[in-house]
């Protein structure tokens, strides 16, 4: 295996155990992966496999019960709430399955939410333009289609200029044609803006578009495959 790029984020033997009343529920057991700067990584797994837990750890929303987690050499596993908040703000852009737009704000204003607290943000309109929604900028989420809402959410994610885009089932609520548009957009941002993208999905049909594909099952990585020739987004079918 050739090291093509520096490691952006490294997960080593991470495990996460949730306490549900009196029972311990292990969501992640001894999982290890290095996320490389600039790659398009796809993590595939069925529901309950631990992929959301992993995303929470990578995204600085939670800490591992055991194991290590480092971002550019910085130990995330022992960050305080304050530092995690700062980490999320500066390094991470999130794209959710259900977009999580603020219903009382327009598309443009939803992007401004991220920009307002960012250190080195984009122009909000620029972000809107990048996702091709300049005509819908002053529409409220309820006036936008699902695909458009997801594009607003992507615009919001990139607007603060993060290094890492975390996408949790970004096409989970979309039809296939719209999904392709969203995936195409993510690929383009990965290519053109050099954003590292980690995309989590249960839909293995999508897996082919990534530079690497990691399969997760029962809280562990079953395999991590290099994909030297990613499938063009247009050819994805399910």
């Amino acid at each position: 295996m050739i090291e093509r790029a520096e490691v952006l984020l490294s997960v080593q033997s991470a495990s996460k155990i949730y306490k549900m009343g009196e029972i311990d529920v292990p969501a992640l057991r001894d999982a290890s992966i290095d996320i490389r700067d600039g790659e398009f990584l796809i993590i595939v797994g069925p529901s309950g496999s631990g992929k959301s837990t992993l995303l929470n750890l990578i995204g600085g929303m939670d800490r591992p019960s055991d194991g290590s987690l480092s971002f550019l050499g910085e130990d995330l596993a022992h960050y305080s709430d304050r530092k995690l908040t700062l980490y999320r703000k500066e390094q991470i852009g999130f794209v959710f399955q259900f977009y999580n737009l603020i219903p009382t704000l327009t598309a443009l204003e939803n992007v401004q939410v991220a920009i307002e607290i960012a250190q080195d943000p984009m122009d909000p309109m620029e972000a809107i333009r990048l996702v091709g929604l300049e005509d819908r900028a002053d529409h409220f989420p309820a006036q936008l289609s699902g695909g458009e809402q997801q594009r607003v959410s992507i615009a919001r994610a990139i607007a603060s200029n993060p290094r890492l885009l975390l996408c949790d089932e970004p096409t989970g609520a979309l039809d296939i044609e719209t999904s392709k548009q969203v995936l195409g957009l993510l690929k383009r941002l990965n290519r053109e803006l050099k954003k590292t993208v980690v995309l989590i999905t249960h839909n293995s049909a999508i897996a082919g578009i990534g530079d690497r594909i990691a399969y997760i099952r029962d809280g562990r990585f079953a395999s991590i495959d290099e994909n030297t020739e990613p499938t063009p987004v247009e050819e994805v079918e399910w």
Binding site: P103, T104, L105, E109, Q112, E116, H139, F140, P141, A142
Partner: peptide
């Protein structure tokens, strides 16, 4: 159904509305 995205009356006054931050837009709409 998703929360309606209608504009509130104040938004019709762009001189007032445009310069305010998204926070205040959220507050006023709420």
């Amino acid at each position: 159904p998703p929360e309606r995205g209608n504009r509130i009356l104040l938004e019709r006054i762009p001189i007032f509305w445009n310069p305010i931050s998204f926070r205040w837009k959220m507050i006023l709409r709420a």
